[in-house]
Write a protein that binds this DNA or RNA. Structure first.
Length: 762
DNA sequence: CAGTGAGCGAGCTTCCGCTTGACTT
């Protein structure tokens, strides 16, 4: 008979804690929630005052019965789930589902997995906090009601299988609204003036920027004319010390952002690599919103910094979360052992680990001391002034280890090196350049910057950021895409050797990599929801209900009352919208078809976005053409729409077969004889593709096909061994079969293949 | 699966937040 059973949420945690507690304790894990609302009747008996109907999901049944058995054998059960709303609910569900009794159950909590913290928690047990559990039940039920009443409404009003929810719908809204901002954005340009001066003391060149910009070329030209006859003089030099402080250690959200910026990881990739590091004991838990480090960890970091960089680089700090609704049940994400600067293992794990190590260590290092110098340069014949700025790092501090990146690709600033300047000196001009600078549209979200925004709004939790990003892409509301840039021409005017010259340069802009674009269906669903459910789509909806959940947790509000006051008006609105709203759709009249004189529409058809020429009622049926990827109902022009009817288009011949471009169910493709190759082209790229480009794709496609085949057999109807997305597999009569791990695909015989096929049919 | 757009209807879809494997073509 074991004396003590401790249940935590994660198996990796259980392993560590087992070591701390030793004999007399069995530490096991429940793998998160063990019960959830039933799917039947939304899992809530509304007539019985919102009584939740909980059940153990089938995949958790075995686990729960094992836990039951263990609990029976123990004298005391210690419920050690996380100390936050969800953790408290997990403890309560365990209590209920395992049939535990008050006299042999204790609830314990700790914020860090250290021996002291665990032993201390065992000394100070408490009972389950029912108010906190109720706050979780309110959260769960509100989400279920919102999700399971809004989604079916979308199935009726827009199309089946769509979804809506408190978190995902707001995420989509952010992306849709940003896209419209960008569509409406009008770039303006102005002229920036940069002078290169020669310092008389040492003949060194340095740059200074005029403190204002000119709106027009005419003004810029006039100013350069003035400069021709001007004398320039340093009127003032000021030097101010400043400092930079390190960023706080990683939370889930900031780890996702930095891994995206520095390593190019998607948020899902970051989480799965971090999971591996966690499971192998190299980092602490990776789903956290806490900035705290255990005192043990801070001490270890200080030691590491001392030995690596010296005493003057140590400055330990504690950080306080500014995020609304942060629950801080864990530590920040940090290396388990501060003195392991690198680890062995796959490259992705190594680089993510190193990022975590640097960030954690830097957070306990000294500020960087910087000296900023600004020189003001006046003109003899104008009131305008130039400013030259320079920065010198006096002490590098944490910069030695880690610099946080930012999302916005800011203009390269001019503040770098300045020679030793003296006040009152006259300067010689080498050249003065006026270059036309354009304002840029607001940036589209990346996966990681969307997570950042959601976190700022208090929407979603560390465990759901990555799944939410996946959901909105899986539903087709949003696509992650790259876009080639566009070209524009900018004017550059140069004054050199008393001569003013002008040239035009073309520059690229608007290049996008891995950005979130809304789809037409994303826009339609969003517009429908915003029109009829403004309060739920409001960016502050979550913050508002979180306040109410806090009231429940504090015991000031009864949870069923809170749910009732939300649900009554919400459900009325659902019923009213179902009865009285128009179908959600997007339809635009683009103009007239010059050939037939009929109306041209862009709309969302049964199979996706289409262009329609003519009316449904016409004697001659309307013509349809699918809108290609990268074009929107909202934005497509009449000209581009009409081009779509040029498909399928025969580009010519290659190896005596026609090369035909068209768009099918799976997007644009090029057909060569009876072979199809999909094209990754968007919008007008597809409409303007040339024969030679298409041939390249055909050749590439044929190469890939060749590589795909690992082995074939010389018989009719024989299975083939092919290379697929997940490795080798057997293809036989249009069905696929998995090859057991112990067998080498290249060596399989015909008989062995048939055996695998037979055995998998059972 | 690559030329789909008649209309009907059965049965299905869906949320957020905790956790890991099992599994995919």
């Amino acid at each position: 008979m074991e004396e003590n059973l401790v249940i935590v949420e994660s198996p990796a945690k259980a392993k560590t804690i087992q070591k701390f507690l030793g004999d007399g304790f069995v530490v096991t894990s429940c793998f998160g929630h063990i019960r959830d609302l039933s799917k039947k009747n939304n899992g809530i008996d509304i007539a019985k005052n919102y009584e939740p109907i909980y059940e153990v999901p089938s995949e958790k049944k075995k686990l729960v019965s094992e836990l039951k058995k263990l609990a029976k054998q123990a004298n005391m059960v210690w419920l050690a789930s996380d100390e936050d709303r969800e953790g408290e609910a997990i403890a309560w569900h365990l209590y209920e589902a395992l049939g535990l009794k008050e006299n042999n159950t204790k609830r314990i909590v700790f914020h860090e997995i250290t021996k002291d913290a665990i032993l201390n928690s065992i000394k100070t047990p408490r009972s389950i906090d029912q108010n906190l559990v109720n706050a979780q039940q309110a959260r769960r039920i509100l989400d279920r009601l919102v999700g399971f009443e809004l989604s079916p409404l979308l199935w009726k009003k827009i199309k089946p299988s769509l979804s809506a929810g408190r978190v995902q719908s707001v995420a989509v809204r952010l992306i849709v609204e940003r896209e419209r901002e960008i569509f409406d954005f009008k770039s303006t340009s102005s002229y920036r003036i940069i002078a290169s001066f020669i310092n008389p003391d040492d003949s060194k060149e340095f740059k200074a920027e005029l403190s204002k910009r000119f709106k027009t070329k005419k003004e810029a030209l006039e100013f350069l004319g003035t400069c021709k006859n001007a004398n320039f003089k340093i009127s003032d030099i000021s030097t101010v010390p400043s400092k930079r402080t390190p960023a706080a250690p990683f939370t889930t959200s900031t780890l996702q952002q930095e891994a995206s910026r520095k390593l190019g990881f998607s948020v899902a990739r970051t989480m799965s690599v971090a999971q591996k590091l966690y499971e192998s004991g190299k980092i602490t838990y990776m789903r956290t919103d806490s900035l705290n480090l255990s005192s043990l960890a801070i001490g270890a970091a200080a030691n590491e910094i001392k030995s690596e960089f010296g005493d003057e680089y140590v400055k330990t700090r504690t950080f306080k979360s500014k995020i609304k609704g942060a629950q801080e049940a864990h530590e920040a994400i940090r290396p388990t052992y501060m003195n392991s600067r690198t680890i062995s293992g796959p490259a992705a794990e190594q680089s993510l680990y190193e990022l975590i190590w640097k960030r954690t260590i830097a957070s306990q290092m000294s500020d960087a001391q910087i000296e900023k110098t600004t020189a003001t340069i006046l003109m003899s014949n104008s009131d305008e002034k130039f400013l030259a700025t320079g920065e010198v790092i006096k002490f590098d501090g944490f910069l030695r280890v880690y610099i946080e990146s930012t999302d916005d690709d800011k203009e390269e600033n001019q503040s770098d090196f300045l020679p030793k300047l003296s006040k009152g000196k006259n300067l010689t001009v080498d050249s003065i350049i006026a270059d036309e600078r354009f304002t840029n549209n607001p940036p589209r979200y990346t996966e990681a910057s969307l997570v950042k925004k959601l976190e700022e709004l208090g929407i979603g939790r560390p465990s759901t950021y990555a799944p939410t990003i996946s959901t909105i892409q899986n539903r087709g509301y949003v696509v992650k895409e790259n876009r080639d840039g566009y070209e524009r021409s900018a004017t550059i005017i140069t004054l050199k050797n008393d001569k003013i010259s002008e040239k035009i340069k073309t520059e690229k802009y608007g290049y996008e990599k891995g950005k979130m674009f809304p789809s037409d269906i994303g826009m339609i669903v969003n517009d429908f929801l915003v029109e009829y459910f403004k309060d739920i789509l409001d960016y502050n909806f979550t913050a508002k209900v979180e306040k109410e959940f806090d009231e429940i947790a504090d015991g000031n509000v009864e949870w069923k009352k809170m749910i009732d006051s939300f649900y009554k008006p919400f459900h009325l609105k659902i019923a009213d919208t179902e009865a009285n709203s128009e179908r959600g759709r997007a339809e635009r009249m683009l103009g007239l078809d010059p050939k037939s004189g009929k109306n041209v529409y862009a709309k969302y058809g049964k199979f996706g976005p289409v262009i329609q020429i003519g009316e449904k009622e016409d004697e001659q049926k309307p013509q349809f053409a699918s809108i290609t990827k990268g074009m929107h109902i909202e934005q497509i022009t009449l000209e581009d729409a009409l081009k779509l009817f040029a498909l399928p288009r025969n580009l010519g011949q290659y190896e005596d077969l026609d090369v035909i471009i068209s768009v099918g169910r799976f997007g644009p493709y090029v057909r060569h004889g009876s072979s199809f190759y999909s094209l990754k082209l968007k919008g007008d790229e597809l409409l303007n593709i040339q024969l030679n480009e298409a041939i390249e794709i055909i050749i590439e496609g044929k190469e890939k096909e060749k590589k795909k085949i690992i082995k074939t057999f010389n018989q009719d109807d024989a299975p083939q061994i092919l290379n697929g997305r997940f490795g080798a597999y057997i293809s036989y009569k249009k069905k696929n079969y998995k090859i057991p791990k112990k067998q080498t695909p290249e060596d399989l015989t015909f008989e062995e293949c048939m055996k695998i096929i037979e055995s998998s049919k059972k």
